[in-house]
Amino acid sequence: MEKMRFSLYRYNPDKDAKPYMQDIEVEVDATDVKLLDALVKLKAVDDTLSFRRSCREGICGSDAMNINGKNGLACVTDLRSLKQPITLRPLPGLPVIRDLIVDMTQFFKQYHSIKPYVVNDTPAPERERLQSPEDRKELDGLYECILCACCSTSCPSFWWNPDKFVGPAGLLAAYRFIADTRDTITSERLDNLEDPYRLFRCHTIMNCVDVCPKGLNPTKAIGKIKDLMVRRAV
């Protein structure tokens, strides 16, 4: 047993006029290795603490939060690697509903705006559409996104224009479909991003790359979309 110190962002619209930081200690065991383990302990002590969580292995994307100033997933963050007091805040830039829970409507709206599905209006063959291993490899580093929003909510351009800038997660997805040899509407996809805000608000600050818990690189994908834009312009 050891005690760990936390500073938690708290806000319950039912009773708090405004948010506040709560200093709290919790006893953890040797088996509590990830930040999420400690959060579960904290909730057992105070059941009013609210956060999302599900898979506890970094694949569902539920428990993204701002951990000591950096966005990440609680379930894959080593508890003992964190400096105390461990400061937890909701993801920045999105409206807070309660405690560590943010309203992700705007984030998903941007994701939906890029038509996140393969479009191929040629008649479907009886068997699979063929794709070479090399062409399939183009999707690696793109399709693995878990929509946790760590990237978009660490991006200043997304903070300023969440309604106009698609953001790194949405753009990574946009390139995932552009890069898919089975998709036939690349030019429509590019038209959809040809706008001073939707794509071009990315100023390659690369916060997205720095925080992605899956090690993906949205900046690189955005660069490739920009290249395609340039190439089709000349």
Binding site: V118, N120, A124, E126, R127, L130, S132, P133
Partner: peptide, 18 residues
């Protein structure tokens, strides 16, 4: 096959099949 047509990114064999 239907999932593949929906766009599921299956790994591929050299001949392009799933």
């Amino acid at each position: 096959i239907e999932l593949e047509h929906f766009g599921m990114p299956f790994d591929r064999l050299e001949n392009g099949k799933i």
